[in-house]
Simulated scan of single mutants.
Amino acid sequence: MENKEEDVKVGANKFSERQPIGTAAQSDKDYKEPPPAPLFEPGELKSWSFYRAGIAEFVATFLFLYITILTVMGVNNSSSKCSSVGIQGIAWAFGGMIFALVYCTAGISGGHINPAVTFGLFLARKLSLTRALFYIVMQCLGAICGAGVVKGFEGNGRYEMFKGGANFVASGYTKGDGLGAEIVGTFILVYTVFSATDAKRNARDSHVPILAPLPIGFAVFLVHLATIPITGTGINPARSLGAAIIYNRDHAWDDQWIFWVGPFIGAALAAVYHQIIIRAIPFKTRA
């Protein structure tokens, strides 16, 4: 017993638990900017991890549409605003699901769950064109399947009555209003994604990668609070496409371009702002 206690004392002295804090903790951590992803990576097509990541994006987007569209249906089906979760509940459903799904899939696919996020990260050369296109296809397929399952639960009558949770510009607003809301809303989301997943911050602050899903989910929540009355809040082309395909009515398709052009412009602006203004990193090209 005495020998054991002596071993513990020696070990405690030899391997001190004291940790540097503040600037001292940052100064001894080397950071090197990761190289840009290649534009084309044919070798990815032979890797199981590539397909596993695509499947993760499909399942995550499927679950995202399933929960969020069902929430929209439930709010619309209630007899009064007081008897449902209301707009705040819808915003929480979208933001909460993004928080949970990003947390679950970040280590597999990066947890994009949104073609606009994928597009923004591609522009910043965080992933190859091959992977970006594959992600976007899988996200759209997952969204279509998720919206389809909701229609199966709700039945044609209620689903049609509540417009399938599809996105379109609300009456009283112009197409320009809707486009502007989608651009700014997606800018907020994608800028948050860049900030929350910044490799330099991860190197200096170990808690950042653990907390990354939280600000991303909150960004989605806050944008929904602001823009649900305008467009129903897209900021995710897969979400808008999935609901439009299953609902399949003219007024959903008339505004569909807004929910692709707006998010992609917003994502591009966020990528430029974060990479060039905030981080002062040029957009490098690599074959």
Rank of each mutant, 00 (worst) to 15 (best):
G262R: 02
K163P: 05
N13H: 12
R249L: 06
V272C: 11
A199W: 05
L214F: 14
A93Y: 01
A124L: 06
K151A: 13
N76T: 06
H251N: 14
V8T: 11
A212F: 03
V117P: 03
D255A: 04
V102D: 03
T233F: 00
I228F: 02
Y273D: 07
W92I: 10
S84L: 12
S47F: 03
K81L: 12
N167H: 07
A12E: 15
T231R: 05
F62D: 00
V75Q: 10
G148N: 09
A270W: 03
R286M: 10
Y31V: 12
I188G: 05
N167A: 09
P209M: 11
A12K: 14
A243R: 01
Q26W: 13
A203M: 02
S195E: 04
P215R: 10
P20D: 12
H224Q: 07
I21E: 14
H224G: 05
T105G: 02
G142Q: 07
N114T: 11
G266K: 04
G164E: 08
A244F: 00
M97A: 06
L70K: 07
S47K: 13
D255R: 02
E160Y: 06
D250P: 05
F62S: 03
A252C: 10
I246C: 08
I276D: 01
F119Q: 02
M138G: 04
A267L: 05
S206K: 15
G180E: 09
S240D: 08
K151N: 12
R239D: 01
Q19V: 15
K175S: 13
K9S: 11
G54R: 03
I136Y: 02
A219G: 08
A203T: 06
K200Y: 14
L211N: 04
G152R: 09
L63H: 00
G22D: 15
I210K: 11
G185L: 07
L101F: 10
S109W: 10
D177L: 09
Y173C: 06
